[in-house]
Nucleic acid binder design. Sequence first.
DNA 1: GTGGTCTAGACCACG
DNA 2: GTGGTCTAGACCACA
Lengths: 130, 130, 130, 130
Amino acid sequence: MLLQIEFESDIPIYLQIKNQIIRGIATGSLRLGEDLPSVRQLASDIGINFHTVNKVYTQLRQEGWVVVHRKSGVMINPELKVEKNTDYIASLEDSLSNITAEAFLRGVTKEAFFHIVEKHYAGYIKEGRE
Amino acid sequence: MLLQIEFESDIPIYLQIKNQIIRGIATGSLRLGEDLPSVRQLASDIGINFHTVNKVYTQLRQEGWVVVHRKSGVMINPELKVEKNTDYIASLEDSLSNITAEAFLRGVTKEAFFHIVEKHYAGYIKEGRE
Amino acid sequence: MLLQIEFESDIPIYLQIKNQIIRGIATGSLRLGEDLPSVRQLASDIGINFHTVNKVYTQLRQEGWVVVHRKSGVMINPELKVEKNTDYIASLEDSLSNITAEAFLRGVTKEAFFHIVEKHYAGYIKEGRE
Amino acid sequence: MLLQIEFESDIPIYLQIKNQIIRGIATGSLRLGEDLPSVRQLASDIGINFHTVNKVYTQLRQEGWVVVHRKSGVMINPELKVEKNTDYIASLEDSLSNITAEAFLRGVTKEAFFHIVEKHYAGYIKEGRE
DNA sequence: GTGGTCTAGACCACG
DNA sequence: GTGGTCTAGACCACA
């Protein structure tokens, strides 16, 4: 999997990496159980500080996306089952509340919005992860 | 219009205000041409510094949501017509890319996602709002 | 002469009026010796505070564009001869320095710039003002 | 690049800085991709508050003149391509409308005006500036 | 009264 | 180290 970082973006680098990894899991370009590069390896590949990668892996582990295995290697959680808890639903509602309001006011119809969402969902695959 | 600020949130106060104002325009609780409180008034109401409100109003003005009618203060742009330019579409695509991926992995089906979006869109009213 | 004020402009109202009067003199829509409306009359016409108009007239008088005649009426200076002093030249240089730099960077060629200037100059008339 | 600030000017400090930076880009004394001092560094150099510099950089970024390369600070946009949109043309027309009218009335001939403009344009260099 | 500018100092997020 | 956010208080321009 190849990560694309935009250093001039207003989105923090650690978030760009984290988002791309989660998207990678959803689209299947990262498979459950697949190893991720070591912290120093990935940092060196991208050309960033290894503390930044560390932050990503730490958050991903805390949220259950990855697990640490032998000698501090990291892999996508083979038994991935992140929660759809109330906190998440609340934050999703909040995000969509803001996003849809602006989209509506900017002339993005509900149908156009649906179309974008559908396009993305079409790219996600259900792996053998019961 | 009543603003609800969470001071412990990790979302900056100025962004919370900005988002709520944009949502207010979409839902019609703020009508086109309606006056907003003065920076100092709103700051005092919420209990924050007026510079924070000033930042909100400045950004809203630069993006075309409000106009400052010299002296009489700030009002919702009566001829609101913010653009659906390529930059915005790109950012919308990017946001939805991340949001849908995580939603999918957390078990939010496309239908459930649609349902949330639809619920919000149902609350938005067309410009012809008297 | 009809004044057009934009209350939402970032240019102060008094400056908009002042500029339009000076442009009016240059284009001939205001003739030398022509009477201007009284402070209260103009303020009432435009729908602004008469202090604002007062400020305009005061500045115009100080700079020599208008003269006060009988019972505080104001008219365009019949012997208009504003100075091309070094201060003015310096300020003109400074303005054009900024304006041309941005124009250049935004892709306005020297020829296009000349064209705009020429268009405006073509609208100015030399009155009998020796 | 050396900034020259006049503290007694009626032009706000932040605007003086902003104008000089844009002129610097046009004249080539600031090259595309060149780093600008940090907000605190520049503020300290000039002897002003860092918030004032921050305001300059924020506006320059919003208008596309500079980019903030995360962590390494602010640099002149290496792919500078600010737009010549209708809004800008309108504001340019308006500025020149006022400036040429006053210049004409103060005895600055069209030729003299052209001469000033030409002098400035002669100092600007094309993008291919290594 | 309004918003705009500037100063001063604090804390945080990021890398 | 960098920029971003927030607070606090001052003065000014405008209407």
